[in-house]
């Protein structure tokens, strides 16, 4: 059974068409990477999956059930967790308060804190600090901690590496790999293609709002530079 499935998704912002019939499957307990150049429609596909953006046509299925039109907070309560591009945190709230917001999904605060500290011990030291004052890497850790604290069925990561130094990106992806080993399904969008290809079970390249190529990571490496630089 697929945890998430997009079927023939078309989507537009204002009057700008972004997606033209995207099909994508995230099987249970697997990591799927969605790759592609700027403006190809990666983030939009994720937003559609998380219920933040309504597709103009096509279906979104979560665990086999059609969820078009279900509000994002309901999807979140059903175990679908999106960590959006550019730090999914509330910068003016403290680390503690950021974690506490997750208790809306039904997990108790104590459990959330415990899980967060287990995976990211550094957050414990920063517990009462305002999230906006954390370093970029710590902010991203907080975003991931919040996402993972609820024990989601599907974790969606959008540009985890945006604006971060490569060494921190590697550290973060080690955690992603670990989470994947624990059996959480992950859909990840990333510009740093090679980093993510090391973690992914499946990958798809999206160009101009269409899936240009999909398959095992090893099969795709050569297609990437063409998709990105036209070379």
């Amino acid at each position: 059974m697929n945890v998430l499935e997009l079927r023939g998704i078309h989507a537009a912002y204002d009057r700008i068409d972004v997606l033209f019939g995207v099909d994508l499957e995230v099987p249970e307990s697997s990591v799927v990477a969605l790759l592609g150049p700027n403006g190809a429609g990666k983030s939009t596909a994720l937003r559609v999956a998380a219920g933040l953006h309504a597709p103009s046509s096509g279906d979104v299925l979560v665990a086999g059930r059609r969820v078009n039109g279900v509000r994002p907070e309901e999807l979140a309560r059903r175990g679908l967790c999106l960590i959006p591009e550019g730090r999914g945190i509330f910068p003016n709230l403290t680390v503690r308060e950021n974690l506490r917001m997750m208790s809306y999904t039904g997990t108790s605060e104590a459990v959330i804190d415990e899980r967060a500290f287990l995976r990211f011990p550094r957050l414990k030291e920063r517990f009462t600090q305002t999230a906006g004052t954390l370093s970029g890497g710590e902010q991203q850790m907080l975003a991931m901690a919040r996402g993972l604290a609820t024990d989601p069925a599907l974790l969606i990561l959008d540009e985890l590496s945006m604006g971060l130094a490569p060494i921190i990106v590697e550290e973060l992806y080690e955690i992603v790999a670990q989470v994947a080993r624990e059996g959480v399904s992950i859909l990840v969008v990333e510009q740093f293609a090679s980093t993510v290809l090391g973690v992914a079970d499946f990958a798809a390249i999206i160009v101009h709002g269409r899936i240009a190529r999909a398959g095992r990571p090893a099969e795709l490496r050569d297609d990437l530079s063409k998709a990105y630089l036209g070379a």
Binding site: A50, R77, G88, F90, L93, M101, Y104, R146
Partner: peptide
């Protein structure tokens, strides 16, 4: 928690929805 959610909504309303806050 609802007070924190109020501040969270000021910071980033869509994100607060992703967290399940109404």
């Amino acid at each position: 928690r609802i007070g924190i959610a109020m501040r969270a909504a000021v910071d980033d309303r869509p994100l607060s929805m992703l967290n399940g806050a109404r």
